[in-house]
Amino acid sequence: MLAKRIIACLDVKEGRVVKGTQFVQLRDAGDPAELAAAYNGEGVDEVIFLDITASTEKRGLIVETVVRTARQVFIPLAVGGGIRAVGDARRILTSGADKISVNTAAVEKPELITELSEEFGSQAVVLAIDARREGDGWRVFTYGGRKPVNLSVVEWAIEGEAFGAGEILLTSMDCDGTEKGFDCELTRAVSRAVKIPVIASGGAGSPEHFAQVLTEGEADAALAASIFHYGKVRIRDLKEHLKAQGIPVRM
């Protein structure tokens, strides 16, 4: 039986992890490669680097980070942030990443999803969607949640699948940072609307939150960042908790 995945997200700026960590003893807590290796040791199922490098001339640093990470961490690695063309994706995938995620660029040019999946296979293409609740539904936001788009999240997810996305990384902007739980309603709505896996993101604060979104939220995977970094939830304990509830996880 396919296990539900637990994914750790690292914000990486100019090759360094931002948001200091109180995570396990690392030689260099700011090194994404070392942090990814530590998470791997803890039993995380997948790692995502979110590149938040602003300056274009320093964009190349993420490639070097991926190269170093992929030499020592043998679990799936995804990279998002700043990927706007097939060439950007190729540099990252040929460096050793398994997937790239696209967000704003895909909203502005949905054909990019098709180009990427034709070139690299849909399993390598993650469509990231930032969602905010509005009335009875959810609206898509781009540019790191700054710009509202005239698009419903559920409709965009369906379109994204049709364009060739292999997976959806769904972030609830309402829940993000609250540590009060994922938006199960949003996640379920999207998960039911598409036939590709859905990763829930935003709001994780406790092991029980993961259990909820992986069951009632019908998510295939759940992602968190700060609670892992600060050691508030340990991946091994989290998986024990899920397993005890009968949720299939890789131990």
Partner: peptide
Amino acid sequence: KVPQMGWNQLQVTPGTRLFQGVEDGPF
């Protein structure tokens, strides 16, 4: 859900060379 994406558990045929030294039920 297609693609199947993630970690799945194997039922390994006993005695296979590829899985030598791997405990049964690996993900």
